[in-house]
């Protein structure tokens, strides 16, 4: 423990606390986003009628996901997926895909 610089230790310590060193952090946008790639294309680019997600606006993605969850937006399968997430998780995954490069 004595061999690293104090500077790095302070920052890393803060990071651990922030990310939940004591409790586990909630599933990240990336963790959730990774599960969508098996349908929406390995880069979120869409495939065979399944729409793309990468690079689209976070608000638009979140809006659609919320509507799948509430049932307002019809779908073949997305209603059954969107109901698996809290609103915070849907927001996080929307942000994740918004941050990915569009294909």
């Amino acid at each position: 423990m004595s061999r690293h610089t104090p500077h790095a230790a302070v920052i890393a310590g803060l990071c651990l606390l922030g990310a939940g060193a004591l409790a586990h952090a909630a599933p990240s946008g990336q963790t959730i986003g990774f599960t969508c790639l098996a349908c929406h294309g390995d880069k979120g680019q869409g495939a065979s009628g399944i729409p793309p997600l990468a690079g689209r606006s976070a608000d638009a993605l979140y809006g659609m996901l919320s509507e799948f969850k509430s049932g307002k937006r019809p779908g073949t399968v997305m209603n059954r997926h969107a109901t698996g997430y809290s609103d915070e998780e849907l927001r996080a995954v929307a942000e994740y895909f918004a941050s990915q490069p569009a294909k």
Binding site: L16, A19, H24, P27, S28, T31
Partner: peptide
């Protein structure tokens, strides 16, 4: 040396 975050699993 990190703690893994909470997981989420999916199947279709």
């Amino acid at each position: 040396g990190e703690q893994p975050g909470d997981p989420k699993f999916v199947n279709t």
